[in-house]
Amino acid sequence: MILDWFKGKKSAIVAKDRLTIAIMADRTSTSYPFMDKMKGEIVDVVRKYVDIRAINITKEEQDNLEALSIDIEFNKN
């Protein structure tokens, strides 16, 4: 038992600490499960008209409202 003192924290405690932090971050996620698919579909539509350089979608929350900001960068013609 005394040997354990020198070995540092028990791995179960480490696991609990790491999980608590990871799950808290997951729960306040700035994404939706469908985000990647939606992003792909938006790219497909916009690409018909312009040459996309980058696309960035973010989820925003305020009170009981959720909003999506979609930033699309493309090259000057």
């Binding site: 354990d4 028990k10 791995s11 179960a12 405690i13 696991a15 609990k16 999980l19 608590t20 799950i23």
Partner: peptide, 16 residues
């Protein structure tokens, strides 16, 4: 393993 502190206990998991 739970006794040795090498596996999460049910209490830990329920807390999380």
């Amino acid at each position: 393993m739970v006794q040795k502190g090498e596996m999460l206990s049910s209490k830990d998991i329920l807390d999380i």
